[in-house]
């Protein structure tokens, strides 16, 4: 009898503890979101999306920073996406059992969890020092390097999920491997690959550290890829640490914009999975 009571007690205790842990985790998440919403919404206005970042004390918006972030994220994924997808394809299809693949996977996992500031310093040495100044393109390259390991990983995983029978069918038809990959394997894994790319975009759109060393910032509108460019994360970083209330308000609003964009991207990624599910339209 007492053993049963003990079991019940242990069970109740475990349930209580895990419930508590969940509550603590959710509390902080909720608190962050709540603070962000409360402080960020206060500064939401059309001006945010139409005006440049202002000098201290005067009114302004985040247009140049939003533009810079979008430009660098897009270029970053345009560089990193194809490299990541092709490398993932190599690992899953061509070099599945090659010894080098194990090394690549290991290095990729290291890159995946490497602090992004290291990527920033690397690109600083690689591009900024040689060009002699900060630039949008250096920022985009840093973001690409962060996007690559994420994309490699998701692509390989998704390609491995394609049934072997389907690949064999194409091979047995006399298709060369590359043809099988483009005509059968990619369509079958399409939703997974697209989801991986969207998650990579979400990942790089909030990166600050690598941009500090590469794109830096720009108070003005710039569409010159060879020049420093404004971007949301660095602007938030700079404005939030400043003593000026209007800058601090812009930092809150910028943070809210980034968070919302990532939320939208994540939801879009889920939507892609359900609508483009494997075996869908050709």
């Amino acid at each position: 009898m007492s053993r049963r009571a003990l079991r019940k007690l242990v069970n109740a205790l475990a349930l209580g503890l895990s419930g508590l842990a969940t509550a603590v985790g959710l509390f902080f998440l909720g608190a962050i979101l709540w603070t962000l919403l409360r402080s960020g919404l206060a500064g939401m206005s059309l001006q945010l999306f139409t005006a440049m970042t202002p000098p201290p004390g005067s009114a302004g918006g985040l247009l140049n920073a939003i533009y810079g972030s979008v430009v660098m994220t897009v270029i970053g994924i345009l560089i990193g996406g194809p490299i990541g997808v092709l490398a993932g394809t190599y690992l899953a299809e061509y070099g599945r059992n090659a010894r080098i693949s194990g090394v690549i996977r290991f290095v990729n996992d290291v890159l995946l969890s490497a602090p992004s500031i290291i990527v920033g310093l690397f690109v600083y040495e690689l591009l900024v020092v040689r060009m002699g100044h900060f630039s949008a393109i250096a920022g985009a390259v840093a973001l690409a390097i962060i996007a690559i390991p994420v994309t490699v990983r998701t692509t390989e995983d998704m390609l491995n999920l394609v049934p072997q029978g389907m690949k064999d069918a194409s091979t047995a038809m006399g298709a060369y491997h590359w043809r099988t990959i483009t005509s059968v394997i990619y369509p079958a894994a399409r939703s997974g690959i697209v989801t991986g790319l969207l998650l990579a975009v979400a990942r790089i759109s909030g990166e600050t550290a690598p941009l500090l060393f590469t794109a830096l910032n720009n108070q003005f509108w710039s569409s010159n890829l060879a020049a420093p460019i404004a971007n949301l994360p660095v602007v938030i970083f700079q404005f939030a640490l400043s003593p000026y209330p209007n800058w601090q308000q812009l930092a809150w609003s910028g943070a809210l914009i980034i968070t919302m964009s990532i939320l939208v991207l994540s939801i879009a990624a889920r939507f892609v999975v359900s609508s483009l599910g494997p075996g869908g339209r050709s």
């Binding site: 069918a169 047995a172 005509s183 059968v184 369509p187 494997p278 050709s282």
Partner: peptide, 28 residues
């Protein structure tokens, strides 16, 4: 690849491609 084109293979588990019926047959 040319050799395999001359030899058809049907597998234990039906394995159509994730394509339309038409595109499946038109694949080869």
């Amino acid at each position: 690849a040319q050799l395999r084109a001359r030899i058809g293979m049907v597998f234990q588990k039906p394995n159509p491609f994730p394509k339309s019926i038409y595109d499946n047959v038109a694949y080869g």
